[in-house]
């Protein structure tokens, strides 16, 4: 019984994950509508060049933010935030202390530092 459950659930999981991955590739051109056409598209390689506290970019929820000027004001200890410079940090942003995301205020604040959209290369 548990063996069948394992096999069935594992197959269903991979179908869901590969389906989502495939759909996201298909969705990418459609997601870049006219409203985002003016937006600069930044690659993971672009992002990876900005890893220092003075030059810190992060990709969060599909957009790239230059947080260099904001970092000194961030309430967390630097060792919590700085490792995410130059990286895709949606998961960290969404799961602050106790797995909770940042507040709507933080979302608004973040928007001010947006410098482009993040182009994922699966």
């Amino acid at each position: 019984m548990t063996r069948k459950l394992f096999i069935f659930s594992t197959i269903a999981f991979w179908i869901a994950v590969t389906g989502l991955g495939t759909l996201s590739v298909w969705w990418l051109p459609a997601g870049q509508g006219t409203a985002q056409a003016r937006d600069k598209t930044l690659s993971p390689a672009d992002l990876a060049k900005h890893t220092s506290p003075e030059n810190c970019w992060m990709a969060i929820r599909g957009a790239v933010y230059d947080l260099s000027t904001y970092l000194p004001e961030h309430p967390s200890r630097p060792d919590i935030v700085l490792p995410w410079c130059g990286k895709e940090a949606s998961e960290a942003y969404n799961t602050k202390m106790k797995g909770r995301p940042h507040s709507p205020y933080a979302d608004e604040l973040l928007a001010k530092y947006r410098i482009g959209s993040f182009a994922k290369v699966p």
């Binding site: 989502l20 996201s24 895709e88 949606s90 960290a92 994922k120």
Partner: peptide, 13 residues
């Protein structure tokens, strides 16, 4: 796209 980015093993995370 965002749904995939959150869990994608190709994330730089």
């Amino acid at each position: 796209l965002l749904a995939w980015q959150v869990i994608s093993p190709f994330s730089m995370s």
